[in-house]
């Protein structure tokens, strides 16, 4: 298909789904990106002019429909605000990508795809990519409980076997993704590669679980980013003895070489500002709620008076 004139200034949200009170999915129109995206890549989003540039993994892409899918966890000011403002028909102020080096979908014949928390959606394109290349795919997904489970069907359609893990055992096995990984590795000693995506602690634990089995484990790192083009160095991570910029040298790295403790310390860098921003945001929400209630009350009163 020929690449036409770029249309890079619309970014309309064409579909939205809410998987839980903190997880939501946005499908954004960007035909060029939908064609260019590959598993493992990410975008940087600005929701409004004064907003922050936040990186989000491309959780799915559909070249036919011309859309890319983002699955977002509301953890702070920007992601919470987007949860409120990003409705179908609205537009993102900025959307740039696909960024990062695509995952190298190797010639592995049996692959373990592990997703936890934030990482469930981002691991999907890789699982699908491996499947399309003819590999056997074993999926391990971790959720806190049954109510938070999403995309089970999507994963089932690309996985030869899917192991769900929940903290409380309300569905699948009771335990963490690492328990699921162990189970999978024991059942399938011929797994030749693993991919683990999620919060840094979970990726660290996953890498430690596969290490004794000698299974190469790729992880997708999520340091704080600004430009995503290799220009600022804010996203630097330690891999082996080297410093790498996750946005252009990654985001995928060999999990057995990554210094996760360094990553976790660096993720805390803006903690104070993040908390302050969140607090102010919550306060402004309460103000708005208050005003809404106020208006509703007034409306109710007028209605009642009208009826009387």
């Amino acid at each position: 298909m020929p690449v036409n004139e770029p249309t890079t200034s619309y970014f309309e949200i064409v579909k939205r789904e809410d998987y839980s009170d903190v997880t939501y999915m946005l499908e954004v129109s960007h035909p060029l990106m939908a064609r260019a995206a590959k598993p493992g890549q990410f975008v940087i989003v600005m929701s409004h002019e004064d907003g922050e540039r936040i990186p989000l993994t491309i959780a799915d892409f559909d070249a036919q429909k011309g859309t890319v899918t983002l699955v977002i966890q509301a953890v702070g000011k920007t992601t919470r605000e987007m949860q409120q403002t990003c409705q179908v028909g609205t537009r993102l102020y900025g959307l740039v990508g696909p960024m990062g080096i695509p995952s190298s979908l190797s010639h592995a014949t049996k692959v373990l795809c592990v997703g936890g928390g934030l990482g469930v959606a981002p691991v999907y394109p890789q699982a699908r990519g491996f499947k399309e290349l003819g590999a056997k795919v074993i999926g391990v997904l971790g959720f806190r409980n049954k109510d938070l489970v999403f995309w089970e069907d999507k994963f089932k359609s690309v996985c030869d076997e899917l192991i769900l893990c929940t903290d409380d055992g309300s569905v699948g096995i009771k335990g963490m993704v690492t328990d699921g990984i162990k189970l999978a590795l024991e059942r399938h000693p011929d797994i030749d590669e693993a991919v683990a995506i999620g919060p840094p602690v979970m990726m660290k634990a996953s890498a430690e679980t596969t290490r004794p089995f000698g299974v190469k484990t790729m992880v997708s790192l999520n340091p704080i980013m600004v430009d995503g083009t290799g220009m600022c160095g804010g996203c630097r991570v330690k891999v082996g003895e080297q410093v790498k910029f996750a946005c252009v040298d990654g985001p995928d790295f060999d999990g057995h070489l990554v210094d996760f403790d360094d990553l976790m310390v660096r993720l805390r860098r803006y903690k104070e500002e993040e908390n302050a921003a969140m607090k102010r945001f919550e306060e402004s929400c309460r103000m708005r709620d208050f005003m809404v209630t106020d208006a509703e009350v007034r409306e109710a009163i007028t209605t009642q008076m009208g009826e009387a």
Binding site: V226, C232, R236, A277
Partner: peptide, 28 residues
């Protein structure tokens, strides 16, 4: 890699392009 070590590019981009000098009016 300590927190508080950053490149001038990051500092300047945050301040100029992302207008972080107006934080918290802007989000960066």
């Amino acid at each position: 890699s300590l927190n508080g070590v950053l490149s001038a590019n990051e500092l300047l981009t945050r301040c100029n392009l992302m207008r972080a000098r107006d934080f918290p009016k802007v989000d960066t």
